[in-house]
Simulated scan of single mutants.
Amino acid sequence: MTTRIKNRWKAGLLVGTTILSLSLPLVSAGLAQDAGVVGRVNGKDITADDLAIAEQMYSQQLGQMPADAKRSLLVDALIDLRIVAEAARAANVPEQEAYKRQLAFFEDQTLRSLFLEQRVGEAITDASVRAAYDEQAAKIPPVLERRLRHILLRSETDALAVIDALKGGKSFAELAQERSADEVSNVNGGDLGFVADGQVVPEIDVAAAKLQPGEFTQTPVASAFGFHVVLLEETRNRPAPAFETVAPQIRQSLEATEERRIIAELKAGAKVEKLVPDVAPPQGEEDGHEH
């Protein structure tokens, strides 16, 4: 990162850091007293806890930067922040109405964030995420899948020769490796994996539907690609996605729903007056709220 870009990034960080400068003393005070010190400005410590807050707030701006470079840049930004904040205090900025208005806004914002985070965290537990997964998995309609192997031949004569070899006891997988024109599956013995109707050419679907596990087609199956010999290895109902792969999305959905519920409940008990007309935002544009 060039010096010019680095300074521009740090300047951009400082523009929106009023909330950070206000929250650092509040948050750090409640954390462990032995937190590591990463910098000092005029004898006042900048701690690893302060750094962690900054990293959380600005992770999207930092992108995929290496960890040591990210740490260095954030500490530089925190030092600059502390220096400018001290200068602002010396200039009596905290006595200005503009400061007090922003302070009140950021205090409300921080209170909202921490309150919802705590209440949502209490409601959405690992057990509730698992329960939601089990409920949704039970609703998934069964989809029959077949594990198939095939051998693709260029002529019907070649396909008939393969069928004769299979009837003579030759291994399907070996014949696929030796003779199949399907260069993707032949290296795996013709294995197509588990497929549902519509995932392979229609002619193979039709032929496989007539087979029992362990059976292969007794006549060549013609398609636009050539002639196929098809083996049905086994059938199953498609399993639900693994819990581990979908749990983060389930948790995020439950948390968003719970947050909306909490806000709606609080609104119902409050006297609210909106003194501007309700206007829906254009489709596809953000409305400034977290959904």
Rank of each mutant, 00 (worst) to 15 (best):
M1Y: 12
R4C: 02
K6H: 14
G12F: 01
G16Y: 03
G16S: 05
T17E: 08
L20D: 04
S21V: 05
P25K: 10
S28K: 13
G30M: 13
A32I: 14
G43D: 07
D45Y: 08
I46C: 10
T47A: 04
D49S: 15
D49T: 15
D50G: 03
L51H: 00
E55D: 14
M57L: 15
Y58C: 07
Y58N: 05
Q60Y: 07
Q61T: 09
L62S: 01
G63I: 05
Q64V: 15
M65W: 02
A69I: 11
A69V: 12
L74S: 12
I79C: 03
D80I: 02
L81G: 08
L81T: 08
I83F: 08
V84C: 02
E86I: 09
E86L: 14
A87Y: 06
A88S: 10
A88M: 14
A88C: 11
R89D: 04
A91D: 11
N92H: 09
E97T: 10
A104Q: 14
A104W: 10
F105W: 12
F105A: 13
E107D: 13
E107C: 14
L111C: 12
L114G: 05
V120P: 06
E122S: 09
E122C: 08
R130C: 00
Q136K: 09
A138L: 05
K139I: 12
K139L: 15
L148E: 01
L148P: 00
R149I: 00
H150W: 05
H150F: 04
S155I: 06
D158I: 01
A161I: 07
D164M: 10
A165H: 03
L166A: 08
A173R: 13
A173F: 07
L175V: 01
Q177E: 10
E178F: 07
S180F: 00
A181Q: 09
D182K: 00
V184S: 03
V184N: 02
S185V: 11
N188E: 13
F194N: 00
D197E: 14
V200P: 01
I204W: 01
A207Y: 05
A207L: 07
K210V: 07
P213E: 08
P213F: 06
P213H: 07
T217P: 06
T217W: 03
T219G: 08
P220N: 06
F225R: 14
F225H: 12
G226F: 00
G226W: 02
T235F: 00
R236K: 15
R238Q: 15
F243G: 02
T245N: 12
T245D: 15
V246H: 02
A247V: 00
A247K: 02
Q252P: 05
L254A: 01
T257I: 09
E259L: 02
R261F: 11
I262M: 08
I262N: 06
I262V: 10
I263R: 10
I263E: 03
A264H: 01
A268F: 05
G269S: 13
A270D: 04
K274I: 14
P282M: 01
Q283K: 14
E290C: 00
